[in-house]
Every structure is written in C-alpha cells, then in structure tokens.
Design a protein around this nucleic acid. Structure first.
Lengths: 233, 233
DNA sequence: GATAAACTCGCACAGTGTGCGACAGGTTTT
DNA sequence: AAAACCTGTCGCACACTGTGCGAGTTTATC
C-alpha cells in the first residue's frame, strides 16, 4: 500500500565494485571542492564531469541523481566536526566545543547551510556526531527523551544562528563592505519603527563579525544554562 | 570604490504607478499562492505568468528579477506572525506565543524555510516583528546589545528547530508513513552506534508530530530559562 | 575466443531565468 | 494635429539545467 519507499543513499545497497578508475569517493571529493569554490548553484553535473575529465552523464553510474550526490557531500561536512569526549572535559565544555565546531564547519562550507533542512542527516558521519552528542548529554545527566531533546535543541540553536550568518556573508562577501551605507540601508528599512534605531546606531555595523561572535556566545551560554537548569530541580 | 551596491527590493525605489490593471501586490499574492501549492521549485515565472493570464516576461515590469519576487513573498510570511504585547501578558508568555506562532507560520509556508538564510529580512513585516520582539526583551529587562542578542537567540532556536521539521514533512508527506519501516531505516543507519538504539527503540516513530512538539517545548522552555538567568545575577 | 558484466558518453527533451527589441495605447509637449 | 514620450505587454532567443536512452567501449570471467 505504501506509495514510494523512503529513499536515501544510505538506505540503498551501494555498488559492489572494488576500486576501478573512477570511484564514488573521488566524485564526492570533487563535488565538495566545487561546492566550496562556487556554492550550491555552482555545482552542475556537466561542470563536475569536466572537472573529472569525464562526460556529465558518466557520473550517473555511481550516483542515482544529483540529490544523492548532495547527500554524500553533505555527510562529508559532518566528518569535519570536532566532538570532544565529555568524560575528559565535562559536558558543558564538550557541548560548547561541539557547538563552536559546528558553526565553524558550516561557515567553511556555506552550501551546507542550504542542505540542512532539505536532506535527512542519516550518513555515517552525521550519525557519529549524533551518537557522541547523545553521550555528552547522558554524561550531563539527562534521561530518556530528554537526551535527544537536548541534542536537538543545541543543534537547532547552532544551525539557526549560523544559517543567517551564511546569508550575510554571501550578500556581503562579494562587495566592499561600507558600514555607513549599511547603516543607512537598515535605518531606512526601519524608519517606521523608531525604537529600532537605538540598536542600529550602536556600533553593530562597524565590526559585524565580532558582534556576531559575541551574539553566538551569548545565546549558547544562555541555552546551556537553561539546559542545566533542567537537570537539578 | 565599492563594487556593487547592496541590492534588495526594500532599498530600491518602487514604481510609482498608482493602480493600473496588473499590480505588484497581485503578483506577489499569486506567487505566495503558487508557492504554498507547489513549493519553491514549483514557482517559475512562466507558471506564474500563466496563472495571471499574462506572458512570463511581463512580470519583469513590476519586479527586477525572481529573487526580488521572492523577497516580497518572503515578507508576506512575516505578516502572519502573531506578536503579543509584553505589557499585557508578561515577556515570557509573549515570547513563547511569538515562538509558537513563528513555528506554525513557517510550517504553513514550508518554502519560506528555504529562504531564511538566503534573503535578508528587511521587509516592513519582518521589521515589525523585529521591533516588537525588541520591545518584549526590553520589557524583560535586557539592556544594550543584549536586547538584540536575546532576539537573535530566540529566532535562531525557532528557525533551527523548524527548518528540519519542514524537511521531514517534505520527504514523508507524499508517502504513506510506516513507523516500522522508518525505525528499520534509522536502525540500519545507526548500526555502528549501538547506544543510539535506545533512543530509536523508544516510541519516537509512532507519533513523530507529537514528539516534535514536545521537543520544541522542551527547548523553548530551556532557552527562556537560560535567558531569564541573564537578567538576575 | 566468446559471453557477460562494468562502465562511458553523445544526443535529445523538457524545463529554467531573463535580455532584447518590437509592439500597443495613453499623455504630454510642440 | 503631429510628434515625442512614457507605461506596459510579450514573443523570441540564449545559455543553462538534470537526466533518460541507447549505442558504444573496455574489462573480467569462463
């Protein structure tokens, strides 16, 4: 009765071929490289084929469709995240380090921001992160559902804070940034809401990166405080 | 010296035409409708033109490019969010209601999830929400940067929690959901991490929507607790 | 040497955003 | 009245996308 089966690279049986000329790993690596250089919209099968010195449609032997390739590339990103051992540093430090690492990795691969919330994170690397994050929160003392809830809350925060940051970098990165121009723009947009001006006129726009870092830390500390509170009633 | 000026619909001067046959509002409304029905990838200029009984390229009179249209449609989403008055219900209730409202609105317009983190939220409706959210956190007692930081933290959490939920609905919505199939899938993906099983084997997959709602509340309460703690040292 | 499996790739199709230039109708200026 | 100018519409064309198909080539196995 079920219409279509749930489809994901991680569910399909992989090709058994040992290691011929072109391999799936090579393709995924090239895709990640291209994505880092040109962004999500810069990755096309034709370009990727050219980069690998092959025809575009040859890649379809190793990969069912482009989405599958993206699933594979996406999981590579999770591999780069540092997940400390809570037994060594304590759960708060461990989760903090993970959070900062996630933020940093996503910012390094901005295209991954567009994939969060579009692809299921079922790859081995994502699983490894999930597993170790569970351990962190178990070490902290969470029980039952709360272990997963705490994990979801943390990743939600990090993603939610970082994704808009990517957007900012994308719109601003390819032009010379002028604080005054930006201030003027936002002031115009907020003209109808005089109270907003007090935040705009602060020196937010002079060093946005620094302010964003501060903001990330503020939210993270708050969040961890809030989680801690759920442990001891 | 500055390469390109910062571009956004909200910065450009709008067309002055009063109200001829076709108007910008009409176009945006039709776009939102189409987006709701067919999702982000379902919106093409040709389809939209057809829906309005006009040629595709005619729309370019009212809108500079597709992105601009998306900016306009995106802002319409912000208009639907309920932003209570903190003076009436207290800041914690006010922020909770806003958070729930944001979640609900985004889930109702899933395509907006893909636009967060791709478009700047400078439209009048987004500004209105930002302004009133500032008021909430000022009423709570936050000062200076912390007012904006608290706001960013809250929206980050809501977005980060909701965006993956959209992805889930998208992959699952168009097929019959089978808890056991899903459980088996995830169990397979997590095979290398035995500790994950204890969360998988709980009844998460029987009523995912309910669990997600629980999770959202857990994170929200934690976050607000954490923010509250920053008020009284 | 033959048969089959593994792999490559050119062609073609249906679709996309959008620049361009040709139109039409109304308003204003000469 | 004529000419010039806006406002608005739209067909055509370009370069680009993912990918199904089928014919071709290489490699492995018996």
């Amino acid at each position: 009765m079920s219409s279509k089966p749930f489809s994901s690279v991680w569910v399909r049986e992989p090709r058994k071929s040992a290691a011929p000329g072109r391999s799936r790993e090579e393709i995924v690596a090239a895709a990640v490289e291209l994505l880092d250089q040109e962004g999500l919209s810069g990755l096309s099968m034709r370009k990727l084929g050219a980069k690998l010195g092959s025809g575009a449609t040859s890649l379809y032997w190793y990969v069912a469709h482009k989405d599958e390739l993206l699933e594979l590339a996406y999981d590579e990103v999770w591999a780069e995240m540092t997940v400390p051992d809570p037994d060594e540093v304590g759960w708060r430090d461990a989760t903090s380090v993970l959070a900062y690492s996630m933020r940093e990795v996503i910012l390094r691969h901005p295209w991954s921001g567009d994939l969060i919330g579009r692809l299921p994170a079922l790859g081995p690397n994502a699983m490894r992160v999930a597993d170790r994050m569970r351990r962190m929160f178990k070490a902290a003392g969470f029980k039952g559902f709360d272990v997963d809830f705490a994990g979801s809350t943390l990743t939600a925060y990090v993603f939610g804070m970082t994704i808009p940051e990517i957007a900012w970098n994308a719109t601003m990165g390819d032009r010379d940034y002028d604080p005054d121009e930006m201030r003027a723009t936002v002031r115009k947009a907020a003209a109808a809401h005089p109270e907003m001006l007090e935040s705009i006129d602060m020196d937010v726009y002079d060093d946005p990166a620094a302010i964003r870092a501060l903001c990330f830390d503020f939210g993270l500390v708050s969040l961890l405080d809030g989680l801690e509170r759920r442990l001891a009633p």
